[in-house]
Design a protein around this nucleic acid. Structure first.
Lengths: 233, 233
DNA sequence: TAGTGGTCTAGACCACCGG
DNA sequence: CGGTGGTCTAGACCACTAA
């Protein structure tokens, strides 16, 4: 996939300071001849980078590296908490692991029936030994077979990728602010005063199957969601 | 812009139920011949729609309308609170309107100097007569000239679009959860127990100028941020 | 293996910016 | 006006899915 390579190439130039913040970077024509790649392919790479907030395109003027391109480090994909934190800092404790039937709402979202079976998992994530994220996860047992405690204590996503060899393609999510319920309070050590940042997420495979409905509640001190909005529509 | 037209055409088919949820829609080849548009253009339209969560593309199988395509109504662009609520429901009260110098942080984000002048505006938004959103807005006076109370009591964005005739192209933002400060508490009628959903946002024109740094704090009862993540990288 | 979507190309043409 | 990015095209070829 050439346009991905081009995107990576350019991103590295930006990260390493070869193309500096706020300044103009090479034109499409230059990149095209230097990298021996068609202009359309360069443009496709630029589409990616501008959607991710690295660059800015000004018709008639050129392409500019965005000032705050380094703040992108906070713009982490929401798929999998394990990938969001430095290795070893994040521990996992499984509080509950069982099989049951979904509620109407969850069944709808997972595109299954209320008579089908799902795993229900409650996990707590500790960041630097402090309970930080409460996770309530539901997955259809038919879709994600062979889950066990061992997997849950590490990364479910690693299991899906490496063992089930399935490709995660997209996710719908919602961010809201909520008060903790009794379990949250107990596990995270909170009182009635506290509040949590809640992410409700549905995650899909590349064949369109929904395989996860999850509710993650984060301590606000540890939570930032950053993103970019660009133009169209 | 043909690909936009194609995207609109397809979105209308989805909204009107002509292409139904979870089902396969026409192939690229079909669309291409029916609409008399090249395949590449169709694909570009599909890029848009899939980034917005309307459809799902499965290589080798076809293109499918996403199950929850109607939940997209909650996925509102963050540029301008006025556009987020039905006409007439949202009132605006200006609490403070002055000119001063930016702090170091705001100056950096707006790409100006701490000796430059900015407008500082505090507004409160009432939804169905209830104080709901507290807005702290900063704009460089050189970039957004001619602001007055009358404009602030309606939509700043309308003024920018219709009178200044400038095009807004992108925005960086962050969502966090915070406790209210004294002003928030007084204006929104909150106690120490309360919390707010905070959006910090920098908004840019299409020539790359940053024209707004704003902090919006929403009552959690009224706040949902919904989005989609797709694949790449 | 036939059908479908994804990538890539070379080149035409348009829209916009700046001197 | 020349230089730049944006759109669109026709067509070649690849990757994947399902029968």
């Amino acid at each position: 996939m050439k346009y991905m390579d081009v995107a990576t190439y350019i991103r590295e130039k930006i990260d390493s300071g070869k193309y500096s913040y706020g300044k103009k970077m090479p034109t499409i024509a230059e990149l095209s001849t230097n990298l021996k790649v068609s202009a359309m392919t360069i443009k496709k790479a630029l589409d990616l980078l501008s959607a991710q907030g690295y660059i800015e395109r000004r018709r008639g003027s050129g392409i500019f590296v965005k000032m705050n391109a380094d703040s992108i480090k906070k713009r982490i994909p929401l798929t999998g908490n394990s990938s969001r934190f430095p290795e070893g800092k994040l521990e996992t404790k499984v509080l509950k692991f069982g099989v049951n039937n979904p509620t109407k709402e969850i069944a709808d979202k997972l595109q299954i029936k209320t008579t089908d079976f799902i795993y229900t998992i409650h996990r707590i994530r500790l960041l630097n030994n402090k309970p930080t994220i409460m996770e309530y996860v539901h997955m259809p047992i038919d879709v994600i077979p062979g889950i066990n405690i061992d997997i849950l204590e590490h990364s479910i996503y690693d299991y899906i990728r490496n063992d089930l060899k399935r490709k995660i393609s997209s996710s719908d999510f919602e961010i809201t602010g909520v008060r903790p319920n009794e379990e949250d309070k107990e596990v995270l050590g909170l009182d009635d005063n506290a509040f949590l940042m809640q992410i409700i997420q549905i995650v899909y495979f590349d064949d369109g199957t929904a395989f996860e409905y999850s509710v993650n509640k984060h301590l606000p001190e540890e939570f930032v969601y950053a993103s970019v909005i660009t133009d169209f529509l």
